Each structure stands twice: as C-alpha cells, then as structure tokens.
Amino acid sequence: MPEEVFKFMTEILKMLKESYKFDTIPEVQYDVESRKHLMPKKRYIFQYQSRHINVFSINAILRFLLHGTVIQSAEGNQVVLKAHLLRHAFATHAVQTEKIPVDIVKTLLHQKDIEVTSYYSAPTAQQVSESINSLHENWISYVDIQKGILRGPEELKEFYNDYREKVGTMSKVVGGICTIDSVCPTKMACVGCGAKVPRPEFQEEITAFYNWADESEKRFEQLGLLLEAKKMKIAKNRAKNELKEIQLIEKSQKDETYAPQIRYNSSK
C-alpha cells in the first residue's frame, strides 16, 4: 500500500491499542451484511469498542468528512458519496484509466466472480464519450465524415423547439444553441456538432470561426504541419455547412412571412 496510507493505518492502530489498553487489538466479526458470510473474524483496523465498523457508520463518516462539499457527475447531477460507490469508482478508474488487469482488481476488491468485477469496472459515459471522440479524431485525419451533410430548416426547428420544451434554459454556444443536456460528445467543439442548431442572429460568430480556421490552415501549411492543416480545412467545411443552414433558415423564415399581393384589374 502507499506509504501515506500505511502511516495513517499505523496511527489508527496506535489509537485503538490505547483505547483497548492492550498491546494488540481484538478479533471482531465482519459487519457488512452483503459480505459477512465471506469474511471470518479478524483483527480488522476498521473497528471500535470491539465491533467492526459497519457500512452505515462508514457512510456517516464520509458525509461528515465531506460536509459542505458538493460533488456532481459530468451531467451535473448531485452525487451522494457512499462506500459502495467508492468501490465502483476505484474499479472503474483502475481498469479503464490505469489499465490494471481486471483479475488483479478482482483480488483487490476480494471478489470471487470476475464478471462482478467487470460490472464494477464498466466505463462511464464520460469515458465512452472520450473514446468515441478519440476515434473520431483519427477518422477525420483521413476523411471528413460530416462534409456535405445539410439539415433542413424544419428539422432544425424541430430540434430547437423540442429542446426548449424539455430543458427551458437555452445553452448558447458559438453560432447557435446546443440541444444536448448530457455529456458533450465533441468536448465543446461546437462548430459542426450535430447537436447544435445554428441561428441567423449568431451568423457573425460562425464567420469569425471560418476566418480563424482559414488563417490557421495557411499557417500550419507553411510550418509543414499537414495533419493540423487538414483539421483546419475540415473545420472550415463545417463552418460553411452551418452558414448554408443559416441561409436555408432565413429563406424559410421569409417564405413563412411572405404575403402575396393580389391586384384586381378594374378595367375588366
């Protein structure tokens, strides 16, 4: 175990020995209901007054230590921290981030069934999103899979109205409104994102983005950074698409407000 953890455990042992007024600590019955049948009596460090500290007490201690601290998920939902959730978090981080083999994590968690450990270490939505984004970045170095895909005004209007009814508060991003209220699939790369609805009133922002991408493409080409130059070219194409979508929206709005003029020829 890490040296700091070992030092803390040594301090706890010292405190317990002083409390028991003895050179060692007593064996106590394990007191976590779901695992009690797997764990024999031992000199568990998580004990007090000759009793193993149960999960309810541990959760209460966690709440006390974290009093006043707000913990949220990537989606913005409040997280109530519990011992069981920490096991999940440890397993997920160990397998998905640290790349520790799942059978080793199984041993660390004292689990008999590796399928249970696999469930514990399942990737989070954020990790899936990051993996997909990484794959997407690899793809765009070869081909822009979004090039030429234009959405019609009615489709964009439906996206916009549906989001406004469900969420209410508009999430303003570069050149339009974001219609996703969960983990961002593009890491805030909003231009060209299928979850964004471009808006005519923000057209200048997309134009400014296009000009920036155009200048960056030329600079990268001069520096010989061909991959980065290709990414900027793709960014320009996506900005062009959004500008075309705005043109379609404006045309649709004009058609909706168009009132035909009827003239009567009084001479007939």
Rank of each mutant, 00 (worst) to 15 (best):
N265C: 05
P101Y: 14
S19L: 10
I140W: 11
E11A: 12
T179F: 12
M170T: 15
S141T: 04
G148P: 02
V95K: 07
K36M: 15
A208W: 06
T97V: 15
Q47C: 04
Y142S: 00
F220M: 12
V191P: 01
A74C: 05
R238E: 04
Y264G: 07
Q78V: 01
V32T: 11
F46I: 06
P260I: 01
M9C: 07
G194Y: 06
F202C: 11
I104E: 02
R238A: 05
R219H: 13
P40S: 06
K268P: 03
L226Y: 09
K7H: 04
Y120I: 02
P2K: 06
L227S: 10
V79G: 00
D162G: 11
I45F: 09
E217N: 01
Q72G: 02
T10H: 07
E256W: 06
E204I: 15
Y20L: 04
T124A: 01
G224C: 13
V173I: 08
N77A: 07
I145W: 11
S121R: 10
K187D: 05
S131H: 14
A259Q: 14
H136K: 09
R151G: 04
N241M: 15
N138G: 11
I180C: 00
P200G: 03
V116S: 11
E3I: 12
E4L: 13
V173E: 07
C184M: 04
I61T: 13
Y30V: 03
H88M: 05
L223K: 10
Q72K: 00
W212Y: 02
T207R: 15
I58C: 04
I140M: 11
C190Y: 02
Y264E: 09
Y160P: 04
V28R: 12
Y264R: 14
Q247N: 12
L85P: 06
V191H: 01
Q127I: 15
E75Y: 08
L227W: 08
L62K: 03
S131I: 05
K166N: 11
S266Q: 14
E165Y: 03
A83E: 00
V174I: 13
Q247P: 06
N211M: 02
M232S: 02
S73K: 07
P198F: 05
S19N: 10
